[in-house]
Amino acid sequence: MEFNFQQYFNRTFPFWNRITDSQKEEYIQNSFLSNFKKGQFVHDPMGQCFGMLTVYKGQLRVFIQSENGKEVTLYRIDEGETCTLATSCIMDEITFDVFIEATRDSTLVVTNSSYLNRVSEDNVYVQNFIYKQTTEKFSSVMWSMQQILFLSFDKRLASYLYDEVIRTNESSLVVTHDEIAKELGSAREVVSRMLKYFQKEGFVILERGKVEIVNKDAIRKIAIES
């Protein structure tokens, strides 16, 4: 079945009814679907200015990486959400480099960056949408930085586990120690050591590629206690 860009944009973008019919037609002409496998890079600092990414299916992870390869996850982009950081070439205010990868098999709706540049200059509603999306994501970035700078690792790990249980509505999390380390900007060995402590205390059960939360209240208490 052919993808209906008109219907999708109408229910996804609040600015859609604020642009002209000719702008809508050109917007659709400058948009396309792109598929990515789990773990595949969608954007990196050395790549071209891709465009605005909206997740139709799947999920993206936005992260930064140090020179020695250490990663810190800034935030995730879920279905129906938009990522504007791959449009840094049209936003002078974005002065740092990010990586974007697919954390699941994903289908993205991509809108060409050069067209976005033109239409955002002509239409304040499109411009406001882009800046609003960027501002909201920077709030997530600041939250991530606060976690890293001001919380002990046991609290950060407990907070991550509890948030994942709430987000997925599952007590069994399919995730590796290495993936958790990338999320939290830590070393795999540190994650493994703390998870083993949680297991010893009866909070979790560890299996290969899986963390089973058996005492959600205890995990929550560690995450929120001062």
Results as ranks from 00 to 15, higher is better:
T82L: 03
T73P: 04
M142Y: 14
T168Y: 14
M145Q: 09
D78Q: 12
L149P: 00
S140W: 06
S88K: 09
M142R: 14
V98Y: 05
R167Q: 11
F138C: 02
V109F: 06
D92M: 06
T107Q: 14
F138T: 01
R104L: 11
V98L: 04
D105H: 05
V141F: 04
M91G: 01
T84N: 01
F150T: 10
E121S: 07
N123C: 03
V124T: 08
F138Y: 15
E93D: 06
Y160G: 13
N128Y: 00
Q147L: 15
Q147T: 08
E136V: 00
S114A: 11
E136T: 00
D105G: 02
Q146N: 15
T87D: 05
M142W: 10
Q133D: 03
I130A: 00
V110G: 07
Y160W: 15
S66E: 15
G80C: 13
M145D: 05
F150R: 07
V72R: 12
E79S: 12
F153I: 11
C83R: 00
T84L: 03
I94R: 02
R104I: 07
T134H: 00
S120V: 01
A102D: 03
S139N: 06
F153G: 10
R104K: 10
D122G: 09
I77R: 06
A86E: 11
V119P: 05
I166D: 11
S159Y: 12
Q147I: 06
S113F: 02
Y162L: 04
Q146P: 02
F96V: 10
L85N: 07
T168P: 04
E81W: 01
M145C: 05
V126M: 08
V109Y: 07
E101Y: 04
N128F: 00
V126T: 08
M142F: 13
E164D: 06
T111R: 05
I130T: 00
D105C: 02
S66C: 08
